[in-house]
Design a protein around this nucleic acid. Structure first.
Length: 158
DNA sequence: GCCAACGTTGGC
DNA sequence: GCCAACGTTGGC
């Protein structure tokens, strides 16, 4: 099982929104590196740190779980969608997405500032300056540590 | 709202 | 294939 971090702006889609429906397609990723990670590296059962970007404060707010392997992001075919991309077609899809299930909220947000201050998280991608990748790998030890900072006893059962 | 970082585009 | 211009992300 692998561990990931996925960013979302809570004004667009928050962990609270995911809790309501239980599952969501992770549509709208329009970056090749992030797409490749979803397409090539993610498996059902992998756990995800749900990260709120452009938020107050910004940080990890809980955990999700990959519930479907990558499949074409059909929002790219829908004219008028903000994720529309004419280069992507049903015959030759360019963009892919996975499904993510809700697992849990942290009892308190693990802010980016807190993560930066904790030496146990040294080397974690999200705390690196200029780290813009919206889908990132996370080391198991870092994942576990963030879960504990968020008030969980450890990594939740998938 | 500002702006640094960085990805993408397109001229050459 | 280089690289300047441009657009986007995302912290602050």
């Amino acid at each position: 099982m692998a561990f990931w971090l996925m960013k979302s702006e809570p004004s667009v889609y928050s962990l609270e929104d995911l809790k309501k429906t239980g599952t969501t397609p992770w549509e709208g990723v329009r970056n090749y590196q992030a797409r490749n990670i979803m397409r090539d590296d993610m498996s059902v059962g992998d756990l995800v740190l749900f990260y709120h970007s452009n938020a107050k404060p910004t940080g990890a707010v809980g955990v999700g779980r990959v519930s479907a392997e990558a499949y074409p992001d059909h929002f790219a075919w829908k004219k008028g969608s903000k994720y529309f991309d004419a280069r992507s077609t049903p015959e030759k899809p360019v963009w892919m997405m996975v499904d993510v299930d809700y697992v849990c909220h942290f009892s308190e947000i693990v802010s980016l500032a807190d993560m930066k201050e904790d030496p146990a998280l040294d080397g974690m991608m999200v705390i690196r300056r200029g780290s813009r990748l919206s889908v990132q790998p996370v080391e198991k030890k870092h994942f576990q540590h963030v879960c504990r900072m968020g008030g969980l006893p450890g990594i939740p059962k998938a």
